[in-house]
């Protein structure tokens, strides 16, 4: 199966790999997995006092599509409000990266990861 150029670009030059301090009150952490591949994805956001996502980091152990999906999402959410970030759909990710049908679950994983990170942030900030 051939990966699209965008997937390869994100895979070879992943954006925003790393970690934020999970104990920081401004940081929300999402941790999700896709049993189909045995993938695990951690996505973190740092939210400003105005409710804007000012930083995002990820760490993903999985295939090229899973890494590209999480890399793309961290790029997309920066500068967005929580509601805007929560409205990202897996279909947008799959479309942008031209993911083949067998890799759609990688985009689902990224969508669920950002939702989980937002939920974690909201829970922490009460």
């Amino acid at each position: 199966m051939a990966y699209s150029d965008k997937v390869i670009d994100h895979y070879e030059h992943p954006r925003n790999v790393g970690a934020l301090d999970k104990d920081d009150h401004a940081v929300g952490t999402g941790l999700v997995g896709a049993p189909a591949c045995g993938d695990v994805m951690k996505l973190q956001i740092k939210v400003s006092a105005e409710g804007i996502i000012e930083d995002a980091k990820f760490k993903t152990f999985g295939c090229g599509s899973a890494i590209a999906s999480s890399s793309l999402v961290t790029e997309w959410v920066k500068g967005k409000t929580l509601d805007e970030a929560a409205s990202i759909k897996n279909t947008d990710i799959a479309h942008e990266l031209a993911l083949p049908p067998v890799k759609i679950h990688c985009s689902v994983l990224a969508e669920d990861a950002i939702k989980a990170a937002i939920a974690d942030y909201k829970k922490k900030s009460g």
Partner: peptide
């Protein structure tokens, strides 16, 4: 189901 698109949060 080990083949579906589902995600887990265990």
């Amino acid at each position: 189901d080990l083949t579906a698109c589902g995600t887990i949060n265990d």
